[in-house]
Design a protein around this nucleic acid. Structure first.
Lengths: 223, 223
DNA sequence: GCAGGTATGTTGTTGTAACAACAAGGAGGG
DNA sequence: CCCTCCTTGTTGTTACAACAACATACCTGC
């Protein structure tokens, strides 16, 4: 049933399967199955556990005051949810977590995760580092997206994104991991408007591109 | 010189001043002063330490490919910076950290923070929990802002924000912590356009407000 | 090579939000 | 009280991005 090897999850990365099995009881872990559509966590709950998706996937659902709701995140096999709220004791959950398909969730108590027990301190440390890394990666992802969405104009958003990509690749020439539609969604703009703006930027000599291959040009080339 | 009590910082919260002093050597801590404008961390650096602002404040500065740059964050006394990158070994910093004024920084090695030493395990645990809380709060702040900025239209952004505020206050009537300009900046829109939209929404019967006091109305009231 | 589908680019129209400029309320100080 | 500063609301104009509809390029299986 459980096809997922916990060693390969971000949370247990660096710990052997047999060591994990040993830890689970000490960690006060519990497994629970959910049918598609079942609510796993509800807005208003006080969360003390991290949920690890062993099978299937879950949606993060936000409910608005006027009754409508929207899917704000999707957590797939091997990833965790609820960690943000579990890390702030007493903080009430602001969204629902709903099974996107039939799924199996492993719940781990946050306090047990972060508190060293007598038997396996070294693994606790490892898990803590993994947890911190998970948070940090989420943080980086969100803050760079924020950075790109902050400018008002379409062109500035594109420049901000391409600028960062160039930085990351350490080169003015690179390929991006998105197709046009995905990039548009990421930047929160319309796809065709974006395509349009890209070709204007190319005409203006700022960039050149072919499909996903981009090259950034110098700013002031007019001597 | 050091007017800041470390006990009152989010990182050392819950640990007494004298206990902190004891820990600092064990934590491999070092203090360093910077003059206004000095670069504390530079894009491309590999960061292993968390910086705690004991005095003054620092700016997070992003450099774009075309030479321009922008201030993307401001870290004040008692708060930390660099924690995100220190939590991901090997990850290169994507922005500069610059002294916004003369300042004193306490550097703490991330590995020492998260690795229990023989003498004071209980405080390490506390610090780890504090670190996780710091990350989690940053996460919540960013993801809710992302949520509000995601919609294209001004009205939807306002509804998203007001909806969340109602949730948090547990009531359809509440006051918001922003003035109009701050709210506009937060939502990434123009202030006057927002004021305009707010009055339209009031005319449409969706909400009513007076200054910072808002009341949300039912969606379908036509009976 | 051809057919069908998908991804990308192009164009024109329309709505909406930024912008600018100003009016109307408070709040605080002399 | 008057004056000034600051915040908020209002209006009209303009620029720009969403939208729709279509054209072209690219890919895949046949």
């Amino acid at each position: 049933m459980n096809c997922l090897s916990l060693t390969n999850t971000p949370l247990f990365h660096g710990i052997r399967e047999d060591e994990i099995r040993e830890m689970l009881s000490c960690l006060n872990a519990r497994e629970q199955e959910y049918k598609k559509g079942e609510v796993i966590l509800r807005a208003g709950d006080s969360v003390t556990e991290v949920g690890l998706v062993e099978n299937g996937s879950v949606n993060i659902v936000v409910n608005f005051y006027w009754g409508n709701s929207g899917i704000f995140g999707h957590v797939t096999q091997g990833s965790v949810f609820g960690e943000t709220y579990a890390a702030i004791p007493g903080k009430e959950l602001l969204n629902d977590v709903v099974a996107a398909e039939d799924c199996l969730i492993l719940f781990l108590d946050m306090r047990h995760l972060t508190t060293t027990c007598s038997s396996s301190c070294v693994f606790h440390q490892r898990i803590v580092q993994n947890l911190l890394r998970i948070f940090a990666q989420k943080n980086i992802g969100m803050s760079s997206r924020m950075m790109h969405i902050a400018p008002r104009s379409l062109r500035e958003r594109l420049l901000s994104y391409l600028s960062e990509q160039a930085m990351e690749h350490g080169s003015a020439q690179f390929s991006i991991p998105f197709d046009r539609q995905q990039l548009a969604d990421y930047l929160g703009v319309d796809r065709s408007a974006m395509s349009n703006e890209l070709s204007k930027m190319q005409r203006d000599g700022l960039i050149s591109y072919k499909r996903n291959e981009f090259t950034l040009h110098e700013a002031a080339e007019e001597g």
